[in-house]
Design a protein around this nucleic acid. Sequence first.
DNA 1: GTCTATAACTTGATAGAC
DNA 2: GTCTATCAAGTTATAGAC
Lengths: 190, 190
Amino acid sequence: MAVSPTKKKILDEASKLFQERGYLASSMRDLAKRVGLKASSLYSHIGSKEELLQKICFDSARGYLEGMRAIEESDMRPTKKVEQLILLHIQIATTDVSSMTIFSEEWRHLSEPYLQEFRNMRRDYERRFGRILQQGMESGEFTEMNVTVCLSTIFTSLRWLHRWYPEKRSISMKALEADLLRFLMNGLRK
Amino acid sequence: MAVSPTKKKILDEASKLFQERGYLASSMRDLAKRVGLKASSLYSHIGSKEELLQKICFDSARGYLEGMRAIEESDMRPTKKVEQLILLHIQIATTDVSSMTIFSEEWRHLSEPYLQEFRNMRRDYERRFGRILQQGMESGEFTEMNVTVCLSTIFTSLRWLHRWYPEKRSISMKALEADLLRFLMNGLRK
DNA sequence: GTCTATAACTTGATAGAC
DNA sequence: GTCTATCAAGTTATAGAC
C-alpha cells in the first residue's frame, strides 16, 4: 500500500495542475515538467492520465461518504447534523483545495464505467443529506421548503470555497467558516 | 446588424454543445455535424472557435450589467434591491440556460486580452453587488457579516440553477424561484 | 527508471475546386 | 457557401536503448 515518493509527487502535481487549468487543458508534458521528468517517464509510475483523475475523484468521494456515515450514526438533532456536514465540507475544502476543485468540476471527464460509478456515489450522498434536511423540516427545526432547493444551494455555495480560498487570506479562516455556516443555517431556519 | 440564419444556428448549437461537454471537449467537427455542415464550412460564417466563446461570454455579461444598472438607479431599499438582483439571476438562468453555464464556467478559456476584460467586468459587477449588501448591513436590514462571504454564497448558489433546471420539472418554476429567494434572503436577515 | 524517438490520432484552421 | 484535401501543431501513449 506504500506509494513511492515519485508516484506521490506525480499525484500531487496532477491535483494542482488539473485545478489550475482543468483536466483537458493539462497535458502530460506540462505535468512531467512540474515533476521534473520527461512525459514518457511518467508511464513508469502510472497507467494513464485518466487514472490520475480517477484517483483524485474517488479519494475525495470516500472522504465525504465517511464523514457522512459518522454523522448519520450519531444521535444529534437534524440542526446539529447539518451543521456538522457543512463543517465537513469546509474542512475538506480548506485542507485539500485542489482535490475539492477536481471533485466538484472535473469529474465529468471520467470515462465509463467510472463516470457512472461516480454519479451513483454522488447521488447516494445527496440523498442522505436530503434525508437529514427532510427530518429537520418534519421536526419543525427548519422552515418547510423544497428539499432539492436547499440541498443544491448548500452544495454549490460550499463549492465557492475552493475558488476563493487559495487567494485571499485577509479574513481569518475561523471567521470565514463562522459566517458561511451562519448564512446557510440562517437560510434554513423558520 | 442582422445575423444570417446560418450564423445564428451556429451560435445556438455552439452554446448547447459547450454547455454539454465544455468548451475544450467540443470540437469544430462536432459543432459542424450539429449544424449540418462540414467543419471547414463553419469558417465562412465565423472567424474562429474562440470567437464563439467570446460572443457568448460577453453577451451574457452585458445582460447582468444592464440589469444591475437599472436596479442601482432605482430608489428601493437594499433588501428590495438584493431581491431584484436575485430574481434577475434566476430569470437569466431559466431563460438562457446554456449561456449561463458558459458564462459561469467556460470563460476561463478565453485568451488575452478578452480574459482580462471579462475578469474586469466580473469584478465590477461583484463590487456593485457587494456595495448594496454593505448598505443593507449598515442600515440594519441585514445581519453584519463578511460581504465577500455573502456575495460568493449568493452567486454560486444561483449558479446551480443552470445545472438543475433543464432536467427536473417536477417542481414548478414559480415555486422554485420562491424557495430559492426565501433561502437566500433568510440567510441575510438578522 | 529515465531517456529519445515515434506511432497513432485529434485538433483548429486554410487552400482551392465547384 | 459548401465541399474535399490537407496542413501544422498538439495530444496520449509505447518501443527500445541505456
